[in-house]
Design a protein around this nucleic acid. Structure first.
Lengths: 143, 143
DNA sequence: TTCGTTATTGCAGTTTTTTGCAATAAGGTA
DNA sequence: TACCTTATTGCAAAAAACTGCAATAACGAA
């Protein structure tokens, strides 16, 4: 379990929402998944623990958690995936060829953000960017 | 009409595929839309000209055109949108607050690409990146 | 121009995602 | 602890997205 439940409980309640067993289970399911969990995977994990949870609830809960920035979502090679939001954001390099996913520190984008702020007065909110391309293995290291 | 139909015809046929009236109409519909056309909008435009075109065909054609890199697709504030692929790629700044969309030249990302290539041996293929944040108008120019 | 191959379409499902609403239960208050 | 308000859930039905397959038609070859 990589999330601190009390923390989430507080953040949910602070905004006048409620922490339900369903929401806890869904948060757990995302945490237990090894980064980038699909809807299908979340359902499977949740229903393994409590088979009575409705799919509609899972859909609504994921949207809810996204809105509260407790989970982030991204589309990786056609699949919508979910991940627990971390304190410092990070991003992903996705290989178009083999599908490998590598993490990328947010600091890589600080230069770009600074430039956009200066030249466009645009404040980026890059919570979870997905950059596609060809990885070292697939493209040859000397590309 | 911003696309050159002959060009597209050639590019489709070169790969052993066929240029059908349906595909032409769908390409036209995307061109005529003012950048970032939704599925719904495409259907409306296509069926205004030829009401007999099936929605399933539109779904399949959009996927087909994306695979051939004749159109690009992106998710802008929750909506999947389509756009004719341009010779030199460009990207978009989307304001989370007011929804405004601004174009961003590909050159803005060349530094990042260079770094990723050097440090990760990762060759980016940034055909249509969407960067969310807060625009000058909504965030104040001095942010 | 005609013919044949086979990519593409339309149709009619099937699956996935979303929605409305009554019943339930979280969590503040007394 | 018991009660009350109303956010949340489950259900069932609707809408949206996707598929399999037989019929059609694009387009290269003769």
């Amino acid at each position: 379990m990589t999330h601190h439940l009390l923390d989430y409980a507080t953040r949910i309640r602070e905004q006048g929402f409620r922490l339900t067993p369903q929401r806890q289970l869904i948060l757990d399911a995302i945490c237990e998944g090894d980064q980038h969990v699909t809807f299908e995977e979340i359902c499977r994990r949740v229903q393994a623990k409590s088979s009575a949870i409705n799919q509609a609830t899972v859909y609504r809960t994921l949207e809810f958690l996204s809105k509260l920035h407790l989970v982030t979502t991204a589309e990786i090679s056609g699949d919508k995936v979910y991940e627990i939001a971390t304190e410092t954001p990070h991003h992903h390099l996705v290989c178009r060829s083999c599908g490998a996913v590598e993490s990328l520190a947010d600091s890589f984008l600080s230069e770009l953000s600074a430039r956009l702020r200066q030249e466009y007065h645009f404040k980026t909110e890059l919570s979870h960017l997905v950059i596609t391309g060809v990885c070292a293995k697939c493209g040859g290291d000397n590309g």
